[in-house]
Amino acid sequence: MKQAFILRGLPGSGKSHYAISLAEEMVGADETRYVICSTDDYFYHSDGSYTFDKHKLSEFHNLNLARFINALGEGIELVILDNTNIRRWEFVAYVAAAQAMGYQVKEVVVGEVKDKSLQHLYQKRNVHNVALRTISNMARHFEW
């Protein structure tokens, strides 16, 4: 059965690590059998550096959705969305596309969203230097 996973969680909660572990567990190391789609990928430069640009966010979200839909269209066995997905509207198009193409869709919240002490941990370990204030604000707006 073809599956799509929608990962949700705060920056630094472990979504990307979870995505890789999930793929390895479900389909092994064969990268032809899975795709991990993350909008963050578009903020990386050829030298490996990362620069977030809020003015590019909408464009990059659209590119990521297109990549996700292309993977579904190719019949990739496992397609994973690795974004924060704080509000439900942020991932509804992904769910609709996956269901329309016959994928079983699973939503996974990674980490503990409301735990303040964990928010401090997430701020320390997130690789994009998202401020604690931003992480706490995201937690307050998280939609279940």
Rank of each mutant, 00 (worst) to 15 (best):
N83A: 10
V27L: 07
Y103C: 10
F60T: 12
H120Y: 01
H45R: 12
E112Q: 04
V35W: 03
R133F: 06
L121G: 00
T84Y: 09
S16P: 00
M101E: 08
T84C: 11
K2L: 03
E77W: 04
S13P: 04
M138S: 11
W144C: 07
Y42P: 03
S117E: 15
A139W: 04
S46P: 01
G12H: 05
V130C: 14
K2G: 00
R125P: 00
A97N: 08
F60S: 12
E143I: 07
R125T: 05
F43D: 00
V130R: 06
Y50R: 15
V27N: 01
F5M: 11
G102E: 01
L118P: 11
I6T: 04
K15D: 00
W144G: 10
A19Q: 08
S136L: 04
N62R: 13
N85S: 15
S21P: 00
E112N: 13
S13K: 02
I69C: 15
A139T: 10
G9L: 06
F68Q: 08
T134H: 04
D47T: 06
H128W: 04
K124T: 02
L78N: 06
H128V: 01
A66V: 02
H45T: 02
V35N: 05
R33V: 00
K15V: 00
Y50C: 08
W89M: 05
G9Y: 05
M138T: 07
E59H: 08
M138C: 02
F142Y: 14
N70S: 15
Q104K: 07
L10F: 05
S49E: 04
R87L: 12
K2W: 03
M1Y: 10
R67Y: 09
F5S: 07
A29H: 14
G102T: 08
G48E: 02
A23D: 04
Y94Q: 12
Q3C: 10
A93P: 09
R8N: 09
H128M: 02
T39I: 03
Y34A: 00
S136M: 14
Q3D: 07
D40N: 07
P11E: 04
A100G: 14
A29W: 13
V92I: 13
K106S: 11
N64A: 11
R87M: 13
P11M: 02
I135R: 12
A4P: 09
H17F: 14
I80S: 11
E31P: 01
E24A: 13
Y42H: 11
M1P: 11
S117W: 15
R67V: 12
I86Q: 12
V95E: 14
A23T: 06
